[in-house]
């Protein structure tokens, strides 16, 4: 009986949050466009960087057409999904990459003064310029190189969104270490770097202990294997595991953040937003 009002309330909250997120994205764009030259050069540099890697793989596959069952198309799809997922995550939730520093320097204070759920609000506060380059590259290379039909493209969009959630969760998880270790900025960055590196190599390359690692501590398996398999044969089982893995990483990230928040001790550093 009370389910309907609850659903309406949840929907209204979601719409309200989407409105807020849109306002932040707009403001973040304005802030970045204050220095449009720097912004565009960062964006283009990231596009070129990713393209160079794809060019490397294309050259590789001209010599070895199949690598453990994967073709050049699969590897390009992998790069497209990883880049678009990472890009989408941090183009909107750019503060996820800054979380360790924000905690260490006591900069959560300002965010705690607003009548909003802390984490989803805090993450919106910054946009990562290069992430837009990743996002554009991901979609561009998938459409331009793989030439998907509509169904594959819809699956790609869905899987990219799931991967974005995974990257947000992972960035939140690594950043939240600062609650426990004091200054975990460097560790957080290295852990994220390991995740990104493993996310851009074919998942079929790894076996045994490393494979276990790729579904636990460095959950790159949810980026570099499952979604590619899902897209190759429109496999629901792989798609569902991708989504389950993403939700799990996001859940762990959120859990660790709020557990750590109890240990937050603020600070007195000078700070400006934007």
């Amino acid at each position: 009986m009370e389910v309907k009002p609850m659903v309406i309330k949840a929907m209204s909250r979601l719409l309200n949050y989407l409105g807020l997120a849109t306002a932040y994205i707009r403001l973040n764009w304005h802030a970045h466009l204050e220095y449009r030259g720097a912004f565009l050069s960062q964006l283009i540099a990231m596009l070129l960087n990713n393209l160079m890697w794809v060019a490397f793989w294309v050259l590789f596959f001209t010599r070895f057409p199949v690598l453990r069952g994967w073709t050049v198309q699969d590897v390009v799809t992998l790069w497209a999904i990883a880049a678009a997922g990472f890009g989408l995550a941090h183009a909107i939730y750019g503060n996820a990459l800054q979380l360790a520093t924000l905690i260490t320097q006591g900069q959560l204070d300002v965010w705690m003064l607003y009548p909003r759920v802390l984490l989803p609000h805090l993450l919106l506060g910054r946009m990562n310029a290069t992430s837009w380059g990743d996002l554009l590259f991901g979609y561009g290379v998938y459409l331009g190189f793989v030439h998907p039909d509509l169904v594959h493209f819809v699956w790609f969009v869905g899987l990219t969104t799931a991967i974005a959630a995974l990257f947000v969760g992972f960035s939140v998880l690594t950043g939240s270490l600062s609650f426990y270790l004091g200054n975990a900025s460097a560790l957080s960055e290295q852990w994220r770097f390991a995740m990104l590196s493993f996310s851009t190599y074919p998942g079929t390359l790894f076996e045994g202990g490393i494979k276990l690692l790729l579904y636990t501590l460095i959950p790159a398996g949810f980026v570099a294997y499952l979604p590619i398999e899902a897209l190759r044969s429109l496999s629901w089982i792989h798609a569902v595991w991708t989504i389950v893995g993403s939700i799990a990483v996001l859940g762990v990230g959120i859990g660790v953040f709020y557990h750590g928040l109890r240990r937050y001790e603020s600070g007195n550093l000078m700070e400006m937003r934007g």
Partner: peptide, 25 residues
């Protein structure tokens, strides 16, 4: 907080106030 700003550094006060209106509904 005198040492912590809630204004957006690269944007005019107008934009921050508009965002705050959204944050406070």
């Amino acid at each position: 907080f005198g040492q912590r700003s809630q204004l957006w550094y690269h944007l005019p006060p107008r934009d921050t106030l508009e965002l705050l209106a959204r944050i406070y509904d």
